[in-house]
Structures are given as structure tokens and as C-alpha cells.
Design a binder for these strands. Structure first.
Lengths: 231, 231
DNA sequence: ACAAAAGTGTTGTTACTACACCCATGG
DNA sequence: CCATGGGTGTAGTAACAACACTTTTGT
């Protein structure tokens, strides 16, 4: 933070969103190109200032509404607060970041100054937003392993090959559709819809269609170890 | 939040700490008895206002220094922000809470207006501090299962019976010392010191002494499922 | 010798990965 | 009837809970 003649007594507080979506097989994040200094021309997370009548979650939803249709965000959770005094070069500003997930298949209309960027190939980012995006990705990776959070990246119904592609994009490594199915079925996270879907023009057996049983976050693997006795 | 003649443009931001310690077999939290309204006489988390030259983590360490010796806090991590506008009845105030852990065996000198309270039997708490304490406990429970966070609740060296008592207090259910040892050894979280300790006056085989290999947080069980291929 | 406390051995189970094999469809 | 892609069966493995059993001390 730069020096002030009279230091500010209170920080500005902004809410930011790390919005992820799997797009053509790649995990991408929605970024906004800054038109003004500081960091003019660099890419930043969408968001804006908190006002006194709202919670941080309401605030980020309000700001997001100008970028994407909020109904398209299937899951939203708090990532944390970034408070380094020098994180904003001109003023004292705290940022609370949220992780938002948009299901595959939706193509939200976004303003001209925003664009989706692959998480593994970020452009130059403003402030500390690069590290916030990385924190979001780590959170997502972890929760894919022990919760049903995949529901927020997957469409309403899907084949297992499609779900595998989503998991591969989000995790960054190969996933077996065979075993993914068994893990998610055993945990009661997904269930067959009953219908089938015929795929490529090259033929092949029609794939079964599945859906997530719940579209709210549930921890499916609460005790990796050290379970309570008898559980 | 109460009504203002001129609404405040910026929120006050405070840092709070949920400081846990296992004391005589019970997980307890350090609370401060409020001397002033609002919530006079009720119990609140230690902490205080953020100032512009510090991060939130530095701020909570600074405020904690007036309650406990900061060197006694073996681990500190951010829990989240609480931003409900009505959480403070008189002003607009956000709170960022931290989880702090003090090892067993230390008896920090605390001021007269603070006291340790069993987490399972909290007194009447001010603001939303009761739910913040519960969030801290959930965080601790989860991390005990998949990380080495026990190092921050355990003394420098300990027998397995002592460590089991710590885990039981923190988790709230019975833990087998036999299996706890194997889990933590297999993961490389603890190691034998080599010495032995003779225990009760009633006799019994002397217990081996162990210590945590690292006294920094490490995730020992990163992929509960959906491991990368070959891992 | 006996009680008390700590430590080891062993069994059974579950959850997972890997991979071979079988099934259904289009050309 | 063959290529393509989806699905099932099964074996091997790692991690863990539970519990019986052994070891080492004090009295």
C-alpha cells in the first residue's frame, strides 16, 4: 500500500469470485480485463465492493449478476480473505474470494471485457488474483475426492465418459470411467436415469445416462481414517 | 445492524481467534468475558480491530499476544469471514476468524477476564461466536483425519496413550492407541524418540516416547480416492 | 505371582486400482 | 463382420478396525 498523508482508518472490502467451468475439455476461469489503472490491461477476478446491507455471499452474487447469470452458478463457497496490506498499490483493500462453479454445457453470455482462460495457462493477472485462482483450484481438487461437488461442474444428466472428461479437466490427470462410476455409485452420489444415449456416427454401444442424486454439496467420505468405533 | 442516521461507508474489520487446547482430557477454547455492552457478561472470542499496516494473521497474533504468549500457539490457520450485517447490533463489522492450537502441557498465563471453556459445554456467547467455535471444531476434526495437525495439540514428545487421549478429546470419540500408532507411523507423521517413560505408581510396562516428525502442517493423506494413475 | 500398562501379531473387511473381457451399435 | 465405444467381471492391493496375545514393569 502506498503512503498516505492521513492513513485510512478502515479498509475497503471487496468480494471476488473464482468462477470455474469445464469448456471443451479444459478447466477455465472467468476473468475481466481491467480498463483502468492500476494493472490496466491485465486480467482480474470479477467482483466489487461490499455494501452495508448485504453479506459477502450476497455481495458476490450481486456483482456476478453483471457478468454471468447467477442462476448458472451451481455452487458457491468461501475461499478465504486476502489481507496483505500491499496487495492493492493505491489503497487499503481486503478481498474475500469465493469459488463458483458453472456446469458444463451452459454458455453464459458474458460482457465483452470478460473472457474464459484456461486455469493452467493464465494471462498476466492483476493484484494477487493469480494466487487466488490457484487456491480455488486446490480447493476444487480436494473436494472432488471426498464430496459430490462434481454435480456443480456436470450438466443435469450425462454419460460416464462425459463425467470422466470433466473430472480429468478439473483434476489434471487421467481418470478411469469404469472406476469413477463405481466410486460414485457406491457412495450414492450418482444414479442411473434409465435412458440411453447413442453417441458418435462411428457407432458404438449406447451409453447409460446418469445424474447426481443431490445438487447440494454433501461430504461423501467424511472419515478417511480415524473413524468412530463401529462406523 | 441497527439503523444509522448516516449509513457507514466502510465496515470495521476485526480478527478473532478460536484457540483450542486439550486440558485434562477435554478440548477447551479460550474465551473472554465482555465487560461492556453489547453482550456484557457474555463470553466472546479474543481478538480486535485490524489496522492498516498488518495482515489479518499479523493482527490476530498481535491481539492474541495480550491474552496468551504467541509462542505457545503451535498452529494458526484462517477459518473464514463472518459478514452477516446484523452480527453486531451496533455497527457494521466483519470478522475474520482464525483457528489456533496450543499444545497440551503448556499452561499459558491468561488475564483474569479470560477463561478456558469446554467446547462441548459453551457458556452464553456474544455475537455469532458460538457458531464460529463450532466451525473451528469441525475444521480441527477433519484435519486430524488427513493431516499431521496433531503436532499442534501434542507436546514435544509423548507416549501413545497420551496422544490417544488428545485425539479422543479433539474428536469426541474413542480412539485405539494401537491403531493410531500404526496409522501415524505408516504415514511418517510420528517417529520413536528412542527413550522410554515409566508411568503410574501401580506399575506397568514403560511406554515408548514418540514425537512428530514435522511441526508444520502437512497433508498426509492427499488423495482419499481418485488418485492419479500409478500413485 | 499377580495386576497394570504397553506393545505386537493376526484376521477380516472394505475400498480402491488395473486390466482383461464381453456387449451393443453403425457401417 | 469388423470397428467403435460402453459396460462388466475379477484379481490384486493397500489401509484400516478389531481383538487376542505377549512383554515389561511395580507390588
Amino acid at each position: 500500500m502506498a503512503e498516505f498523508t492521513t492513513p485510512p482508518a478502515l479498509p475497503v472490502h471487496v468480494a471476488l469470485a473464482v468462477v470455474f467451468q469445464v469448456r471443451v475439455g479444459v478447466l477455465e476461469v472467468l476473468l475481466w480485463e481491467r480498463a483502468r489503472d492500476p494493472f490496466r490491461g491485465m486480467w482480474s477476478l470479477p467482483g466489487g465492493a461490499l455494501v452495508s446491507s448485504e453479506t459477502l455471499e450476497q455481495s458476490i452474487l450481486r456483482h456476478l449478476a453483471t457478468k454471468v447469470d447467477v442462476r448458472e452458478v451451481a455452487h458457491l463457497e468461501q475461499l478465504g480473505v486476502w489481507s496483505e496490506p500491499a496487495r492493492h498499490p493505491e489503497r487499503w483493500e481486503l478481498a474475500t474470494a469465493y469459488l463458483g462453479l458453472v456446469p458444463l454445457g451452459i454458455d453464459p453470455r458474458v460482457p465483452a471485457d470478460t473472457r474464459w482462460h484456461p486455469v493452467d495457462d493464465l494471462p498476466a493477472t492483476a493484484f494477487d488474483h493469480g494466487s487466488i485462482v490457484r487456491a480455488g483450484r486446490e480447493r476444487l481438487r480436494g473436494k472432488l475426492s471426498y464430496s459430490n461437488i462434481g454435480f456443480a461442474l456436470a450438466p443435469d444428466s450425462f454419460t460416464l465418459a462425459e463425467l470422466r472428461d470433466i473430472y480429468e479437466a478439473a483434476l489434471g490427470y487421467e481418470v478411469s470411467a469404469t472406476n469413477l462410476k463405481r466410486v460414485l455409485l457406491r457412495r450414492g452420489a450418482i444414479e442411473p436415469v434409465g435412458t440411453r444415449r447413442s453417441h458418435g456416427p462411428a457407432g458404438g454401444r449406447p451409453a447409460g445416462v446418469y445424474c447426481y442424486c443431490s445438487r447440494r454439496l454433501e461430504v461423501t467420505d467424511p472419515f478417511a481414517v480415524l473413524r468412530p468405533p463401529g462406523a
